[in-house]
């Protein structure tokens, strides 16, 4: 493959974006929302005891690596995946695969990617990108969150692939080995939807799935009593960033998932899924409204207890609506 053969598409999210870009390169007609939905990417989790740079962890998606793995498995695509003990072996293996003409997906740390704006460069180790060529001692990078392709020096890429801290990428890389002649989206979409419903509704612990939205609401209500105004503001800010900052497609992946449901409705020719898609769009708007108001509370730290109560109630409404939404979607007859 010459470098010119690779087509880069910008996507909202790194993992579903890389999955879509790699599969498209192999001639599979798949969009980012489809990859995201089949990979059952939408989720919610709040872990008050797991502090990331001092703030409790909140997530709107499933754990790193899951979307890619589930989506390729459900579509019957064989992938090669590999981790490495050291950068030398990892870079050598990358060069070998690139020489055969395959674009390669890999995990990296955002902090060590010089081409990203500083504003986004925190120590986040589960960023996915595609390397599709090497020329003049530079790697050609297709980072799905960017509009254009870019380039990176080998030392920088090696650093990013071997960043420390949880989760450690350990040079993890992957590429498509083989694609079946016919791809059956119907079955894959069904199991993706079923799994998302299951993960949102079933976890018996308060930190994961729909229940965690209510946990977060309760916590937010306690912020003004338990935290200094500065801390409370930082905690709220972190939720907004997880929900809206680069990579979620808006409203913490809710719009991305609604886009998936719409595409699924067209593929499966089902109007009920179309209805679900529209409904989730409205729920997404509620999440955006929550973020907007949370930012307002942050801007005026004096406002105090009343506004935190209101924020908590907004979240509870999102939680109630999503609970009802997934309960009905779980009952769909296929």
């Amino acid at each position: 493959m010459s470098i010119a053969d690779y087509k880069h598409y910008q996507h909202a999210h790194c993992e579903s974006g890389v999955t879509a870009n790699l599969l498209r390169h192999e001639g599979v007609d798949i969009s980012e929302p489809l990859a995201f939905g089949i990979g059952a990417g939408m989720f919610f989790g709040h872990l008050p005891f797991l502090k990331v740079s001092g703030t409790p962890g909140t997530t709107f998606r499933t754990w790193p690596g899951a979307i890619f793995k589930r989506a390729t498995q459900r579509l019957g695509i064989t992938m090669h995946t590999q981790r490495f003990p050291n950068p030398q072996k990892a870079m050598k293996a990358l060069d070998d695969v690139l020489a055969t003409g395959k674009p390669v997906g890999m995990l990296s740390s955002v902090y060590y990617l010089p081409y990203l704006p500083e504003a986004f460069r925190f120590h986040f180790n589960a960023h996915n990108l595609v390397v599709y060529g090497k020329e003049n001692e530079e790697y050609y990078v297709s980072d799905p969150v960017l509009e254009q392709t870019t380039r990176i020096a080998p030392e920088d890429l090696a650093k990013a692939r071997f960043a420390k801290g949880a989760p450690e990428p350990k040079g993890f890389m992957y590429y498509v080995k083989s694609v079946p002649k016919e791809i059956h989206f119907e079955k894959a979409i069904q199991s993706g939807i079923k799994q998302t419903c299951f993960f949102m509704l079933s976890p018996p612990v308060p930190w994961f799935g729909n229940k965690a939205i209510f946990l977060l609401a309760n916590k937010i209500q306690q912020y003004p009593k338990k935290l200094t105004p500065r801390k409370a503001s930082l905690y709220l800010g972190n939720i907004i960033r997880m929900q809206e900052e680069i990579g979620t497609g808006g409203a913490g992946f809710r719009f991305l998932y609604a886009a998936f449901l719409q595409e699924a409705a067209n593929i499966l020719k089902r109007d009920d899924l179309q209805g679900f898609s529209q409904e989730l769009t409205l729920i997404g708007d509620d999440w955006r409204n929550f973020a907007y108001n949370a930012a307002r509370v942050m801007k005026d730290r004096k406002e105090g207890i009343v506004s935190f109560d209101e924020l908590a109630d907004m979240l509870r409404i999102c939680g109630e609506k999503e609970k009802d939404f997934f309960k009905r979607m779980q009952k769909l007859k296929w």
């Binding site: 910008q10 996507h11 909202a12 929302p33 504003a119 509009e147 972190n238 900052e245 808006g250 719009f255």
Partner: peptide
């Protein structure tokens, strides 16, 4: 960087739209 968001066009179809950012999110960052 302009990121991609998903939004509904006037015919009710989802489509990707690039966004420079959002006040609320910028403030948090």
């Amino acid at each position: 960087v302009n990121k991609l968001l998903y939004a509904v066009d006037k015919n009710g179809n989802y489509t990707g739209v690039t966004s420079a950012g959002w006040e609320a999110e910028n403030f948090a960052t």
